[in-house]
């Protein structure tokens, strides 16, 4: 994770497009400017970034479903629970399941845990639309390859 760049997912551990499931690995850095303010003398991963981690985990799954033809944009976080603090240096395991593949939108259930203990969970919804421009699409394809996104999910049929 590079918190200040909103790069939350380090690696895709497993992605099953047919089953609509994904697992990711997210290493919380030991140091980050984010921890300077959150909180002084008590560094903890902000809850907003836990939600972002769940949203990005699910986002990669939706991108796989779409085979990169379109892009998901976060629209709604429902029933979010932040169960405990996350400290610098911890490894978060992300998991998401596609619960609804709508026309122009998608819904996932996402969980992050550490050491088998659930840290946070939420239902997350996305609107699905065209990539805003070629630059962002190219950057996301590059990032996808970097984190182990399946090559066969990178191209629309």
């Amino acid at each position: 994770m590079i918190l200040e760049y909103f790069q939350m997912v380090d690696r895709i551990v497993a992605l099953d497009r047919k089953a609509g499931t994904i697992r990711t690995s997210c290493q919380v850095p030991t140091q980050s400017p984010v921890f300077v303010g959150h909180f002084p003398g008590f560094p903890r991963l902000p809850g907003a970034l836990m939600i972002e981690t769940m949203a990005q985990t699910g986002g990669w799954l939706v991108l796989a479903q779409l085979k990169f033809a379109k892009m998901p944009f976060l629209t709604r976080v429902e029933s979010a629970k932040l169960r405990r603090f996350v400290e610098p240096g911890e490894t978060l395991d992300g998991a998401a399941t596609l619960t609804h593949d709508g026309s122009g939108f998608a819904v996932i259930e996402s969980v992050i845990s550490t050491g088998g203990q659930k840290v946070a969970s939420a239902e997350i919804r996305y609107v699905v639309g065209p990539f805003p421009n070629d630059t962002i699409r190219a950057a996301m394809v590059f990032k996808a390859r970097e984190i182990g996104f399946p090559e066969d999910c990178l191209h629309a049929e």
């Binding site: 629209t75 709604r76 593949d101 709508g102 026309s103 122009g104 939108f105 819904v107």
Partner: peptide, 24 residues
């Protein structure tokens, strides 16, 4: 945005997939 939430609830209630993209 509200219409997407409505569409989600309708899809679930009737077990269908409304073709919103096609309609749009």
């Amino acid at each position: 945005l509200d219409f997407l939430d409505i569409a989600f609830a309708i899809d679930k209630s009737f077990a269908i997939k409304m073709p919103l993209e096609q309609w749009t």
